[in-house]
Design a protein around this nucleic acid. Structure first.
Lengths: 258, 258
DNA sequence: CGCCCCGTTGAGGAGAGTCAATGGCTGTGG
DNA sequence: CCACAGCCATTGACTCTCCTCAACGGGGCG
């Protein structure tokens, strides 16, 4: 539960009481193996996941077998808040590494929100960030070249990983095959392979064994990928001090859990 | 305000009291001309828009001028609920036709939510639908051919238009230039033009003057575009009758506005 | 050892992009 | 009322990014 705490702590300063609620969750932790579905397309179960360990992908399959990975779930990510309202999932979520996740029936989840306005804010914030990531994914696929897409994705994953773990890693271990990257970026595995080889040759990245990727020249890669450092909204909301923001705190907390 | 009523009414059955709240909103209606910004990238203003008339686009510009349209806003759409939490907008929303929209400061908006749990559910539902549209947009540009993308977008816009107005129009008047369609679908205007010409030749669509588009063979177009009729979640939630759903109503309303 | 999955590389092809010219429509001003 | 400018759709010719098909090779695992 540690990862989760530091993730949410980035958005809002959560009071001590709220942490008690989390301890209940630790008992609900499930394990998933690579390939296991957390959510299956067509599912109607209403539950919220908090990913504590491992990576997962959210994807959709077309009838003819084409796959599009919509986004990646890293430790600390919360999903599907939308399942609280949805009739049935239009996509699947599958573990791509060994995963640990708290699985919370929506009823219990909502109880949690009611207990703590802070918590509700944090989850709201988390949903906003996820939407922002979706929008960025649209821009990435729609208007960027293959090299830009890959560079941009690597930078995003790197930043999100640091945000989740708090460890300023140099080497990011990316548990993705070329096919995964291709399906996320609207490319083919062959072309991803070629493009990444070229990126290695030009000294942008280097790869070790087991998916270890090092971003050698972050600034150059960011420039080449037109990476906007702001969209992840990683800045901490200091709700207590800023005046203009205080109003938001009072209100939007209530939206979620007064 | 009529459009808006029928839009929200699709998701939940709103009680009469809530409608009183809407009357307040009618006084807040603003007009926008084509090209006017409703939200400008970098904006920090916290307010929610309810579009009553006209079309708008949400887009992001890269530094070198490339533009990606993230999604379209049609009458009845509500945005940005996320601005309640966001620090500043990472994208712009611009009117592409003459538009009328209620502009609600977030404080007032939240007051509304508190007055009616029904309303809160409806807005939550609306946000879920928007996210679903974003995911579908990702699949569309990531894994579909030019013809599939265009066909799929036309079907989506057609369905959303009917959902918004309730009018089962045959001819949809699409106020989009080839450049707009291209920037939405990750293509170039030239190729959009070519592809749509081909679609006209093969009898899938026809175009009249002023952007009037008729979908001649909806089933064939849906098959060719791999259009999934379900993702828009247009089905009405009958919260009062279904048992499994009733729990949701009690809970998720409270998330938003107890 | 041998299988399978994965990454890589090559050759050739196709879909989409680029550049450029044309023509229609609209709005404006002489 | 007509001339002209500006915007947009279209079409042609050519280019290039990315895809397809295919072969090869390495590492993990039974």
């Amino acid at each position: 539960m540690k990862v989760f705490k530091r993730r949410l702590g980035q958005y809002v300063s959560i009071d001590d009481d709220a942490w008690v609620t989390f301890d209940e969750l630790e008992r609900q932790e499930h394990c998933f193996l690579p390939g296991d579905d957390l959510i299956t397309a067509g599912d109607e179960t209403r539950r919220v996941f908090i990913l504590n360990e491992g990576w997962a992908i959210r994807y959709r399959l077309l009838e003819d077998g084409r796959r599009q990975i919509v986004n990646f779930m890293l430790p600390g990510d919360v999903f599907d808040l939308q399942s609280l309202a949805d009739l049935k999932a239009d996509h699947s979520v599958t573990a791509i590494t060994h995963c640990k996740a708290a699985v919370i029936p929506s009823g219990i989840f909502v109880e949690m929100l009611k207990k703590s306005a802070w918590l509700a804010s944090a989850f709201w914030w988390s949903a906003v960030q996820e939407e922002s990531i979706l929008r960025e994914q649209i821009v990435r696929i729609g208007r960027r070249s293959a090299r830009e897409r890959i560079g941009h994705l690597l930078l995003e994953l790197h930043r999100r990983f640091i945000g989740a773990t708090g460890i300023e890693v140099e080497k990011l271990t990316v548990p993705l095959t070329r096919a995964d990257i291709a399906d996320a970026l609207g490319l083919t595995p062959v072309h991803v392979s070629r493009t990444m080889s070229a990126m290695r040759r030009s000294g942008l990245i280097s790869e070790g064994r087991g998916g270890e990727i090092t971003i050698l020249d972050r600034d150059r890669l960011a420039r080449l990928s037109l990476f906007d450092m702001e969209y992840l909204h990683l800045k901490k909301l200091d709700l207590l001090k800023k005046n203009g923001v205080r109003h938001f705190r009072e209100t939007s907390s209530r939206i979620n859990a007064d």
